[in-house]
Design a protein around this nucleic acid. Structure first.
Length: 421
RNA sequence: GUGGGUGUAGCUCAGCAGGCUAGAGCACCAGAUUGUGGCUCUGGGGGUCGUGGGUUCAAGUCCCAUCAUCCACCCCA
């Protein structure tokens, strides 16, 4: 246990970190182009923020939060998602006092307690965006477009964008009534969890993978067919905007996102290549959340995507190549008495912007060469008594094996030229 | 939280129905005469057989528990 990482966590090792950097680079670039600014919120928040924000009856709050009492007896939770903290920051920092909308994005670790499996971890990473203050359907379309554009820039293929509208506080109650009415006689045929949903959150029954539940629910009235005028118009506009920029989507009437706060637009992006956890990203509109968190009535919309799943997909699709760690120069010494000279030369090379390495293990010259070869340097400087006597240094080009004597005063410019620096 | 698979050197694995000092390949380190890599050869270091119990004269090999890991369910990213 001492040298074992906690369950569901991962070390991102050298060689893989480059993947993450790549994803992050593209995130910063695309968000800048779409007019989003980065925000970094704490890794932990007051538990009540998530309890209220995410929803008391959600699985996240009921059984997946990493919560604890700190030494001041405060109830703290490691953030399970990024929307609630962003809303909190929006309110706490009074972003609403500035010209609206507020467009923010974040990247960072999230925590949920559950059994790990392919594409699911206890600590995982999300990239998400949030927009506050606008009801406009064009912003819904923009948020979706940003997500799709991101995958596109990473060359990910085989995605399906599922789109739905889950209505608002005006049309939901009427639909709920119809739904309950429809399912009433079939109640006993529902699976146990759906019987629970029937009471708590009947909309979620659409999500059930149980065959009989699916059969029952497919005949039931979909929320999408019961939208109020406002929601229907909004949904149509979102679709119109998406069509105009050629984003393909599937209207999925069964798409009901898990978190309580969603209203109107709901979407989810799926891939086949990553196992059972096929959702690579998702989001939607949350017009009541800001108010729920103590703010004024402020609409919002956003998405979050799981970076581990993005990477998993890219690996499956062969889009990520292992990068070799390469350095320019290795400084070898014929015997250890020259180590100080080598050390000084290293610093000169580095100050000139080259990457350079020497031996720290007391290796023989032969072993140093072997080691240098494994490091993949293009050139080795050999320093020995002969060189010292003539005030020169031997430069060996590893690819060809050819060596040349270079005066100490000139070796830097020589190396730079050689390495096309 | 539920179910199933797996757990032997750094890595990939072998270890036959329980029986002698637990092996291989790769990796690592060092040599193959005097200051030099990539090929080859030789040698070397390294294993609490996940952990803890139990059965047995004897367990890496059987049983139980536990931990970890993988996959699936629940749910989600």
């Amino acid at each position: 246990m001492l040298a074992t990482r906690p369950r569901g966590t991962n070390d991102i090792l050298p060689g893989k970190v480059e993947y993450w950097r790549k994803l992050e680079d593209v995130i910063h670039e695309i968000c800048q182009q779409y007019g989003f600014r980065e925000i970094r919120t704490p890794i932990f928040e007051h538990t009540e923020l998530f309890a209220r924000g995410v929803g008391e009856t959600t699985d996240i709050v009921e059984k997946e939060m990493y919560s604890f009492l700190d030494r001041g007896k405060r109830n703290i939770t490691l953030r399970p998602e990024g929307t609630a903290p962003t809303v909190r920051a929006f309110l706490e920092n009074k972003f609403y006092a500035e010209p609206q909308p507020t467009k923010l994005y974040y990247i960072g670790p999230m925590f949920r307690y559950g059994r790990p499996q392919a594409g699911r971890f206890r600590q995982f990473h999300q990239f998400g965006v949030e927009v506050f203050s606008s009801h406009d359907p064009s912003i819904d379309a923009e948020v979706i477009a940003l997500a799709m554009d991101y995958y596109k820039r990473l060359n990910i293929s085989g995605l399906e964008l599922h789109l739905n509208s889950v209505g608002c506080s005006k049309c939901r109650p009427a639909h709920k009534e119809k739904l309950l009415e429809h399912l009433k006689e079939q109640y006993t045929n529902l699976c146990p969890t759906c019987q629970g949903r029937y009471e708590k959150n009947p909309l979620r029954i659409f999500d059930c993978k149980n065959d009989t539940c699916q059969k029952l629910i497919s005949a039931a009235p979909a929320i999408t067919d019961c939208l109020c005028d406002d929601c229907r118009e909004h949904f149509e506009q979102v679709q119109k905007y998406l069509k105009e920029i050629n984003i393909e989507y599937i209207v999925d009437k069964k798409l009901v996102r898990g978190l309580d706060y969603y209203t109107k637009t709901a979407f989810e992006i799926m891939v086949e290549d990553i196992g059972a956890q096929s959702s690579i990203g998702g989001g939607g509109r949350y017009d009541r959340l800001v108010k729920e968190c103590g703010g004024s009535d402020t609409p919002g919309i956003g998405f979050a995507m799981g970076l581990e799943r993005v990477i998993l997909t890219m690996e499956q699709q062969g889009l990520l190549k292992d990068t070799k760690f390469e350095q320019d120069v290795f400084v070898a010494t014929v015997d250890s008495s020259l180590d100080l000279e080598a050390f000084k030369i290293l610093q000169i090379l580095r100050s000139e912007g080259l990457s350079a390495e020497k031996d720290y293990m007391g290796r023989s010259l032969k072993s140093q060469l072997k080691y240098a070869d494994k490091l993949g340097v293009s050139h080795v400087l050999v320093l020995g008594q002969d060189e010292l006597a003539t005030g020169s240094i031997t430069v060996k080009k590893m690819e060809t094996g050819e060596q040349t004597q270079v005066q100490l005063a000139e070796f830097v410019s020589y190396i730079k030229k050689e390495t096309n620096f």
